[in-house]
Design a binder for these strands. Sequence first.
DNA 1: GCAATAGTGAAGCAATTACTTCACTATTTT
DNA 2: AAAATAGTGAAGTAATTGCTTCACTATTGC
Lengths: 108, 108
Amino acid sequence: MLHDTAQLDLMFQALADPARRGMVERLSRGPASVSQLAEPLAMSLSAVVQHLNVLEASGLVRTEKVGRVRTCQIEPKALRAAEHWINERRLAWERRLDRLGDFLAETE
Amino acid sequence: MLHDTAQLDLMFQALADPARRGMVERLSRGPASVSQLAEPLAMSLSAVVQHLNVLEASGLVRTEKVGRVRTCQIEPKALRAAEHWINERRLAWERRLDRLGDFLAETE
DNA sequence: GCAATAGTGAAGCAATTACTTCACTATTTT
DNA sequence: AAAATAGTGAAGTAATTGCTTCACTATTGC
């Protein structure tokens, strides 16, 4: 679970599309129905549903259907996982730079 | 520059591939040549160069050729930009949940 | 019960992606 | 100078992506 590269594939892939990032952005301000997500987007409802399926498969969004309306929510745990992967790599790099700096300062 | 969605597209797209994430992971431990990046990967050198071009176009990796060897480095600023986008959305969601919690506590 | 609303599912299509191979060019090493 | 090394570039290909349209099914409001 800590190293599930397939899940990271899906998450980063999901975030790579501006329409999907728009949907995530909208959802970060609160839950929304499929139609509400579709409203600002210049594409068919079908296309929006397909994007939503990508987001849901990635784990970034969770949805629940009540009656005829599907309500969508962000899943912050998944966002945190993506964030974490990037953060680890950046920190590794920065720690390395620090050690290099120390080394250069010492040998000066 | 603060809201360059095209650049985010490129970065998340770049991170969506396990081979490319492997390369970033390798580079997070220090600079490497193209051949060194290719070594653990089960694909042709040509394919690796193509992945590298994707990483470079995304801004995540910077390369410099000296003699016949191209040396690759992580660009932490770009990593930070991707991290930041995710973080903002997650925080927006969590702040919203907090306000909701406060509201429910008050009206209880 | 009838019409409007909310969403689903499948087929089709053009563009993009992730490779491959092969031929090639520089740069080192011996 | 010849051989090995490091990488580049182009063409080809199969799979995937991001849409579209159209036909369809539930649910809700009047």
